[in-house]
Design a protein around this nucleic acid. Structure first.
Lengths: 241, 241
DNA sequence: GTCATATTGCGAACACCGTACACGGTGGGG
DNA sequence: CCCCACCGTGTACGGTGTTCGCAATATGAC
């Protein structure tokens, strides 16, 4: 009967009990990684690059982290910890709005965040604090554990998806090396083919009429609306206020 | 005044007008790629691997595709085309439900799909057909182009986020090489630390009480609920039925 | 206080990866 | 008919994550 042991960064001691003092910390590597990812994209975060930036041999990183994934986990939790959740207000709608808006803000500040956090589940102190806050929104309302989890999951799912859509569009234009206007124009050239083909009349109409892609505030508004819509959906279950 | 030209796979001719016949097709490479990704994960889809599987030199792929990203675009559109949208029913709720459920089904069948499709925007015939269908759901209702796009975007955002959450959990256990039960147990060992720490009482309570993680149907139910909730939110805007 | 031992950082190496380029063979448009 | 655009290929470059053996180090055990 072998003991099954979870192997997360968080459940391993920060340093061994026996050997020489580590010259750096997990946090330091995480911070440097976040900095690189913010300014040059997540793909620029390579073991060698991070090592170089910290001033250490590439192989040294593996004394702090088992695999590159764990470095990602540290990055994710670090940005969750950037902003600690506030005190619970006592109004579930208010608190869930905070969860949603803060999550979106966080994801837009660090465009690599959503991609990483949806590929692995990081349960570090930073993320846990926010989970605690989100669940706390329903304190005093008689919801089952499953109902609470489903509600929070629904909200987060929307935020995740919405942000991914927005980032995807922005990065598609960034990657092409064009500025936003040029990209829109290039897009519309391809759009002409779609419109011209006559096979997708509704898509064609919306591409012409919708202000969405041209209006930088569109993402904000559609986010606001979506959040309120989802909160509306919960209110029947939660009861008053 | 240089002409800005969109450079998508879809707007380039399938073969040159002059030279020898290509021995393969874009579709063939896409099919092989999908097969590899389905059975071994998206990371197994390398230029060299796909080339080998098709029986061709690695460099040959670049006659069909400018960069690896375009191969991904082809993969995405291929699985959208697996199932063509049905005829519009005339009931917007019914049709949007089809959009949501089919999108989820598609994403669960091909766990790599969501990751890819959120990183690039692929506007091939397969995806366009579904866009056309989704927009068509609001035919006859007096919505602005922006309202239609926002509604569809909200729904897709939720599906995306929800599926990503589900897949993330499944893959976390798959990657660890444990079966699902073992992983749950390993998770719970880490959970003990969280519960034991006393710092996250609500998280601790939900980890114990929620049937979610243990119930394989939980994801389905929470998806159903989420979709209905979002459709509820739209109904005020759409009006009757 | 001494010693054994676990742990650290490091250099080198391995097996991959995406992509560029020059090359000879092919076949359709002028 | 012939030119030349295009196809497939071999080779090469610079990058990636990760492993392994080694010397130096600091701690727990005696």
């Amino acid at each position: 009967m072998t003991e099954i042991r979870a192997d997360f960064v968080w459940s391993r001691p920060a340093r061994g009990a026996r050997g020489p003092k580590p010259t750096h910390t997990r946090d330091e590597f995480a911070q440097v990684s976040v900095q690189i990812a913010d300014s040059e994209g997540i793909d620029a975060v390579s073991i060698r690059r991070v090592a170089q930036e910290v001033g250490v041999a590439p192989a040294a990183l593996y004394r702090y982290v088992r695999r590159k994934d764990e470095l990602h986990d540290l990055m994710v939790d670090l940005v969750f910890a950037e902003q600690a959740p506030p005190e619970l207000s006592g109004h579930w709608r208010t608190d869930l709005r905070v969860v949603a808006y803060e999550a979106r803000h966080r994801a837009l500040r660090h465009p690599w965040l959503t991609t990483l956090s949806t590929q692995r589940i990081a349960l570090g102190p930073g993320s846990l604090a926010w989970m605690e806050f989100a669940f706390g929104a329903f304190d005093g309302h008689e919801l089952t554990a499953d109902e609470i989890m489903t509600n929070v999951q629904t909200l987060i799912a929307f935020v995740t998806g919405h942000v991914l859509g927005q980032i995807g569009e922005e990065q598609a234009s960034a990657r092409s090396g064009m500025n936003h206007d040029e990209w829109l124009q290039a897009m519309s050239v391809h759009g002409e083919e779609i419109i011209g083909s006559g096979r997708y009349p509704r898509v064609a109409r919306l591409m012409v009429e919708a202000a969405g892609p041209h209006d930088p505030d569109h993402a904000d508004h559609s986010f606001d609306l979506g959040v309120e819509r989802i909160l509306d959906g919960m209110s029947a279950m939660v009861g008053a206020r």
